[in-house]
Nucleic acid binder design. Structure first.
Lengths: 131, 131
DNA sequence: CCCATAGTTAACCCGTTGGTTAACTAAAAG
DNA sequence: CTTTTAGTTAACCAACGGGTTAACTATGGG
């Protein structure tokens, strides 16, 4: 239940780039060719080609070559895999929202204690041996 | 509804590394110090420190410095942000699962067509002018 | 005061990313 | 056959990621 899973590496990495997320976004609307997908971006065709390969390698998109056009579609199963990981870990933690609260309270307390401690240390030093 | 959002860049990127996902996994159980989190990994302390900074920069963890210990806790809101993005795009697409089916059918059809086309071209060439 | 502990910062190495331009393959159209 | 059009591959570059070791800060305990 916590195996490294390199597939998630690729999925999350693919989604960490804004251009690639935008491509997925356009693809969520309707299947498109690589050229159509590239149109709104002001980067070169080879750059798009690389992005597509990363998305494909992550299993996020599927490609159907038809003549000289490459038709692409989203494969929601990869998104689902990422979602499952997130759900698992978030749900796990949300069941302990009280702990986050107390954690934040402790943060306040400790910063108060910190200044008190500094004070105490200060007074000790005041009396202390000054070599 | 499709702004670049650099925060998602950092969240997804942070989650693209197996060590960092494992750290989040341990943190989903209970808050821990950096040292406790580092214990199961066979990498150096500075390496862990960098991972923590990336997770913190992505807003995935919060840190409370108490004496010389750094207590860390998960901030589920960052996970939620990632989940929201995924949900939005997946739901959008799942409403069109039929399109994925037809896409895959087309894949089969086009591979058949491809061989037919190749055949036709072949026969044309057979009759054609051979310089 | 001295030493161990918890953690970060600095400097460095090497592999990878994201972008470029140039050259290439392959299909469509003239 | 010639030229567009769609897209990829190759070679290159600056920047960055993940790891290291060495040095540093700062708290805690004898």
């Amino acid at each position: 239940m916590a195996e490294p899973d390199p597939r998630l590496d690729r999925i999350f990495f693919a989604l960490s780039d804004p251009t690639r997320r935008a491509i997925v976004g356009r693809l969520a609307g309707r299947p498109s060719t690589v050229g159509e997908l590239a149109q709104p971006f002001s980067i070169s065709a080879p750059a798009i080609s690389k992005h597509m390969k990363i998305l494909e390698g992550a299993g996020l998109i599927r490609r159907r070559v038809e003549g000289r056009r490459h038709h692409c579609t989203l494969d929601p199963r990869a998104l689902e895999a990422a979602q499952d990981w997130l759900s698992y870990h978030r749900d796990f933690w949300e069941a302990r929202l009280d702990e986050l609260e107390s954690f934040l309270e402790e943060s306040d307390k400790s910063s108060q204690q910190r200044s008190e401690t500094t004070q105490r240390k200060g007074s000790k030093r005041m009396k202390g041996t000054t070599p």
